[in-house]
């Protein structure tokens, strides 16, 4: 029986992924974990901003039912691996945290390697800045995940921006997990904390404005590109700053999803088709998650 009879000319390619082998799954700070998975097709297709959907249940179990979306934190196409940064807070992520780490292929007759059922990558990516521009990466919480991937890509790119500055926000100093990884890159890293226990005292968008007013003052605003990813409140605050200052900005938006590839219509955000146009509910998974800040509706459609 041939099921795939006549192929339909497909407009979008999602690799047919096999099981993702767990390479390692380790703590990188209080509550934060880094999961490295091996699946060459996903590793090749992943890009900064794109995300994958992880099934967080043993095969045959339907609880938890839905996959969990994660931005790709890093990928190594040569090694066929990709990394996910996550916090074990809910049922799905706690299940992920328990994935066994079996770095070596098993001996014949040995126990099977740990695998995760992952599909993707889905979604678009951050647009690289023009050569010579200043790229400001603004992140909060695990929202730094796609920014790390992007920072690594920018550092490796031939047409490097003139400078890359990370602004990372957290509630307190002990929640700035992941910052050490950014500090290993040849970029400038700045932090902010709500309680002032490290770096700039205030919101990460306050830190961003501080840098714009102090260090980047007098420069050509057309040579500043901003990339953001964080909780909705941070994203909205970043959108406002970028609009007020007329700066080019892309924001990686998050929302509760059921599927991750456009069939459920759950993860929508109001977007203008073009500047000044009417707002439409667009699917973040299909048309995003990265959007031009100017097209996002003030408030990002958040109801709560």
């Amino acid at each position: 029986m041939t099921l795939e009879s006549t192929p339909v000319p497909c407009r979008r390619q999602i690799p047919e992924a096999g099981p993702s082998r767990v390479v390692f799954n380790r703590k990188v700070g209080p509550g934060w974990l880094l999961l490295r998975l091996e699946e060459p097709a996903i590793a090749r297709a992943a890009a900064p901003g794109s995300f994958v959907e992880v099934l967080c249940a043993v095969p045959g179990s339907y609880d938890p039912l839905l996959r969990r979306p994660f931005s790709v934190y890093d990928a190594d196409p040569a090694a066929g691996t990709y990394d996910l940064l996550y916090i074990a807070t809910g049922r799905g992520t706690r299940w992920m945290a328990a994935l066994p780490e079996l770095p070596e292929l098993p001996e014949e007759g040995g126990s099977p390697p740990a695998h995760a059922d992952v599909i993707g990558p889905f979604g678009n990516r951050f647009t690289p800045p023009p050569a010579g521009a200043t790229a400001l990466l603004v992140g909060g919480g695990v929202g730094v995940a796609p920014l790390y991937f992007f920072a690594r890509e920018l550092c490796a790119s031939r047409e490097r921006p003139a400078q890359v500055i990370l602004c990372m926000g957290a509630r307190a100093a002990d929640q700035l997990q992941g910052i050490e990884e950014f500090r290993k890159l040849p970029i400038r890293s700045e932090v902010s904390t709500d309680d002032g226990s490290a770096g700039f005292h205030g919101l990460v968008t306050g830190l961003l404005e501080h840098l714009l007013d102090r260090d980047l003052k007098g420069g050509d605003p057309r040579r500043i590109t901003i990339y953001g990813c964080g909780p909705t409140a941070m994203n909205e605050s970043l959108r406002r700053v970028a609009i007020e200052r007329k700066l080019w900005c892309e924001i990686c938006v998050e929302a509760r999803m059921a599927c991750g590839f456009g069939i459920c219509f759950a993860c929508v955000v109001p977007i203008q088709k073009s500047l000044g146009g009417a707002y439409y509910n667009r699917r973040i998974c299909l048309e995003g998650p990265v959007f031009d800040a100017r097209l996002l509706k003030p408030g990002l459609g958040e109801h709560e």
Binding site: D63, L65, L66, C264, F265, V268, V269
Partner: peptide, 14 residues
């Protein structure tokens, strides 16, 4: 359509 969030997972369902 409706405002978000539009889905919530429940035990073996949504």
């Amino acid at each position: 359509g409706n405002p978000t969030p539009r889905v919530v997972e429940t035990a073996s369902g949504m």
